[in-house]
Structure formats: C-alpha cells, structure tokens
C-alpha cells in the first residue's frame, strides 16, 4: 500500500445541486481517505445518486467544491477525464456491454490509452491477457470468459461490472447498490469482495440493505434531503434519533 499523498482522496464541500428549484444536494460535505471504505445510506431522494453524478462529472453542481487528491477540480472535468483520474463507477442496475464477451468487457475496461487512434491500432499483448485472467479469477467468471455478457445472470453481471471497475485500476470506486437482486450467498460474497478491494483502494458503497452494510463493517454516512444527517459506525448511526425519525417517520 502506497503512502497517502494528501490527507484526503476525495473532498466535497458545500456542494449544492438544484433542478428547477428542487435541491437534490444541499450544501453536502464529505471527505474520503485513501483506501477507506464508506457506506452511504439514506432514504429515496436523499441525494445519493446525484452525489455520484457530481463526483463522476455527469452533473455540474450549482456551487461548492469537489476535489480529487487535493488538486483535481472534479466540477471542471468531464466523465472521461474523471475516469482517467482514477474514479470508477458501478451503476445501480448492472450495466455491461451485453453483446460483447465477458473477456472483451474486461479488455475494454483495462487501463490503456483511450483515444480512437490508439484503440484502432492496438494489438493484444500477453501482459493484458494475464491481467484479464487474474481479473476473471477474482470475480469468478473464468468459466464464462467467452460467453456474451448479456447471457450472464444478474449477480454475475454485477460482478462483471465490479471486475471492469477493477480493470480500470482506479483509486476510488463508487458502487451503487451492489447487493440489489442478489441471493444471500452472493450478497455475502460481494461483501467479502468489496472488503478485499478496500484493502488497496478507496470505496464508496451506496446501499439500502442494512445486513449488507453491517457485513461491510465500515463507517456509515446517512444522507437526508441532500445533506449529511449523521456519520459514524452503523450502530451509532442507527441509534441516532434523527435518522430513526427520517426512516420511520414521526
């Protein structure tokens, strides 16, 4: 594990996003350390997805700061540039290239030159092959290597997408509801995988499934109406009166 260059990897401060007067994010502030795993919880409409949109450059905030590694201003960059900085994102519904084989999905995700000319003239190297082999092993898809991604099961697609994120060799992974639609066993395995990943990379997991969050055993941030409501261990957050109020109603 490399020594941290700056104290925080991701730094959001006072980020506000509004759509037609509706504030999806309201002065949100958040800091993620190198190789830290953080779980984000919150009811629907709390701003979880919008926060990811801001971090990955899909949405421009109306105001606020979003810094990566202390120097890169995320609000000024587009999706592709942010991805190249080392931020990977997994969507809520698994999104893979269904017509491509599992292997090709990973190949496209590998950290390589992304320009049209480079991809047009690229040749497959043995080195790449080894990396793909290792990734397939890690997300348990070696046997599916030549199948079309569209033919995989829901859980396999989730894992393939995580594999693609790993292939990007990012410094920060944003993972939206990885356990959705998975069997209990798959959910437990996914938690293991994420914990393993978090040994070397920072991970932000958005999840509704409290068992899963407990399994992860990490610091939890609860969002509500676009800002941070509570932060701490899951037990502490669940004990927080305001969190209970938001989740259960008065």
């Amino acid at each position: 594990m490399t020594a941290p260059v700056t104290p925080t990897l991701l730094y959001l401060d006072n980020v506000t996003v509004s759509f037609d007067g509706f504030r999806a994010l309201n002065a949100l502030s958040l800091a993620i350390d190198h190789a830290e795993m953080r779980a984000i919880i919150g009811p629907n409409g709390a701003g979880k997805t919008t926060m990811m949109d801001v971090i990955t450059g899909k949405t421009q905030p109306n105001e606020g700061t979003a810094l990566f590694e202390g120097t890169h201003d995320l609000t000024a960059l587009d999706e592709a540039a942010i991805a190249e900085l080392g931020i990977g994102r997994k969507f809520q519904t698994p999104t893979v290239f269904e017509m491509h084989t599992v292997e090709d999905n990973l190949l496209l995700a590998l950290k390589n030159k992304r320009g049209p000319l480079a991809t047009l003239l690229s040749r497959r190297a043995n080195q790449e092959r080894e990396r793909i082999d290792a990734l397939l092993e890690r997300v348990r898809l070696t046997a599916q290597r030549h199948r079309r991604a569209g033919e995989l099961s829901h859980g396999q697609k989730q894992w393939l997408e995580i594999g693609m994120l790993l292939a990007q060799e990012p410094k920060l992974l944003l993972i939206d509801e990885p356990a959705a639609g998975m069997t209990d066993q798959e959910t437990a395995d996914t938690a293991d995988l994420l914990r393993d990943i978090a040994k070397s990379k920072a991970v932000i997991v958005v999840e509704h499934d409290m068992t899963f969050v407990r399994d992860l055993g990490v610091k939890v941030t609860c969002l509500h109406e676009g800002s941070v409501l509570a932060e701490g261990s899951l037990d502490a957050v669940s004990a927080n009166e305001r969190v209970v109020e938001v989740y259960l109603g008065r």
């Binding site: 592709a80 990977g88 999104t95």
Partner: peptide, 13 residues
C-alpha cells in the same frame, strides 16, 4: 451503441 454512459465512465471520450 449498447451502453453509452458505461463507456463514458470507463474513460472513453
């Protein structure tokens, strides 16, 4: 063609 935003978030322009 199949997943434009996925491609974008992988870092392709």
């Amino acid at each position: 063609r199949d997943a434009e935003s996925r491609t974008r978030f992988l870092g392709y322009r």
